[in-house]
Write a protein that binds this DNA or RNA. Structure first.
Lengths: 203, 203, 203, 203
DNA sequence: AATGAATGAGTGTTCATTCAT
DNA sequence: GATGAATGAACACTCATTCAT
């Protein structure tokens, strides 16, 4: 990468990071371009030199976010040892990583809210969800082959697991304070153990 | 209720229904008061006569929505027979009811998105979540007492179940079209069966 | 017309007059909506209540202008007596009317400049030009029938006359000051006399 | 001219031609410097190296345009033979030259539109108009001296002729398409013949 | 109760111009 | 001479809310 391209990338990152911070703090709609501009320490023109619009910034952030999450998921699912243990390790690791990103979670849910309404966005998310399901399905099948898990309709169960994980994250965010505060890792472990018991039952 | 109060209530409902439709279609931010006014077939002044602000309309819709959902939940959880069967019936019934409300689900997620950032809203939702958890916890405990379910930390498992349900709904919305389209009832049943196996395992 | 419609018309006129004044002073592009708003003594919202955009205001002004000019032209061309005299009277009257509108002429030329580039606008203007040509053609034909003018290709000559008039106005505007200042009425009369001599020659 | 100056001139021409094309296509206000830069195949800095501002580019184009037109006019008016024939030849030749420049005519009218409002520009144009008038006046006087034209107030008639020519061009542009499409040469010839008849009448 | 005209603060985006390299 | 990233003032338009009638 040439120095110029490199600088260009630096600037883009600079803007995206600033924007992510602002979006997380204020939400997409309340965030003004001026906020992003200020947070990035650049001028308005500079921001618009690198991005077409506020929307593009938002979308780019989400793309990167999803991609990163996807990579994490993939990496983490490349475990060894018994499948049930892999599941547990996976969940624990994920919980820890997500915990660190808690500041940015509101952005995700803003995105989901849009996705619930717009097909285009929904499709993008759908691809990620499919790939998560694929990964889990594979693990479940392996578990069955090795005799570590019961024979179940792997695809359906995988989808249920994805739902479970998304649900845990949602509840975690929605209960991030107050008396009923939730600990993501604990919730993840409780949930996976519950399911694993079902998957191992009678083995 | 006096005729006047009654008319007043009719008008409010009229506005709320119109607003819900518009919010579902456009989302809270893109929806303009003019859209609601038009959809309701009233005048701007009339809408502002019954509601203080756009925010109040939104909040009121959500309150009613949550309340209704809560009543459903409560009613449905008043079953008879073995606890596992109650769980299944409950899930099936819920799935069917929610399926009918699918048009309005985007509103819920918009609300969640706000909740992820604002404590006030979060608290309101939190109360509902707590009450759901309470209901499920009670069922789990009953199941354990009757020997129909294993002994488990009821509260934690109840929360995991709430997470599971919320996750299922989220996935269902996010995959409401495309090749990987999801059937809510099936997803609910797969999920609850998975968990029930765990809860009954070794009994 | 109901009182409401009447008020609405008053407001529209109020805005159009203000806008015409501002456009004449600053030109379309330099004129800001705020200038129009201020000149009209209304609020921004009010202006946008009655007009969709700055463009619409501009177009509306031009439409009215052209229409009025057209009416003038038509009225003035309804003369009596010998055709050559009618031509002279017509030119004199037009010159006087146009002279009073001199402040607004820059707007017309701004419009012509756009018309030179955009077909849509050109078509609108074209209709007016055609109708002017029609009127003059008719007069020329009458003149020929009555033996007051020579036989000439009426349409072509009519068009030449329209060109002459437009040219006179343009020169008048372009030479509205300086040593070579032009008097529109005199220019009109010189021109029409010149042509009339040609049209009457050898009669 | 040194090679350096020569290159400099080439660059300037390159920019002016690109700008003229863009201005003709989009008009002065809608044309962005970026459009000119792109059309010229140069960089922004380069354009600003040769020209102070967008305005300067515009003004320079017009100056050259007017100058060229002026030279044409002067050259063409240097005819021989009877004055009426000279007029006809002049008009015909002008019509042909202008026809070739039709793409750039919109720029002229943009300039006129500005001139209608700004004295500075008006003065510049005025000088050219005066020189045209001078040329025509001279021809008319010659014609009168030679007995080829009637005695008329030469200056006034010359101005009327200029108006006529400008009017023809304006109508031509404004009717460059549609059913009533105008042929500039024909319009010019019709007009000049009409006037010449007047100028020769009774001779 | 109801209307809808009126308000005006707020904001995303554009674009001529500059300047470090 | 030339590049193109960076600047920032400017501006059309939106829309929740108000209020005279």
């Amino acid at each position: 990468m040439s120095p110029k391209q490199e600088l260009s990338q630096v600037r883009k990152d600079q803007i995206l990071e600033a924007a992510a911070t602002v979006f997380a703090r204020l939400g997409f709609h309340k965030a003004r371009m001026d906020d992003i501009v200020q947070e990035a320490g650049l001028s308005k023109g500079a921001v618009y030199w690198y991005f077409e619009s506020k929307d593009e910034i938002f979308t780019t952030i989400l793309d990167r976010f999803m991609e990163r999450y996807h990579e994490d998921f993939q990496r983490i699912s490349q475990g060894e040892g018994p499948i049930p243990d892999q599941f547990r390790t996976m969940m624990r690791t994920l919980a820890q990583e997500i915990d660190m990103l808690s500041n940015f979670m509101p952005i995700i849910y803003e995105y989901y809210a849009v996705a619930a309404r717009e097909e285009t966005i929904r499709r993008t998310i759908g691809q990620y969800l499919t790939s998560y399901t694929d990964l889990l399905e594979e693990l479940i099948k392996q578990g069955a082959e090795r005799g570590e898990l019961k024979e179940v309709p792997a695809r359906d169960v995988a989808l249920a697991l994805v739902a479970l994980m998304e649900g845990c994250m949602l509840i975690w965010i929605l209960r991030s304070d107050g008396e009923q505060q939730v600990d993501l890792e604990k919730l993840f472990m409780t949930s996976i153990d519950l399911v694993l018991k079902g998957l191992q039952a009678g083995t």
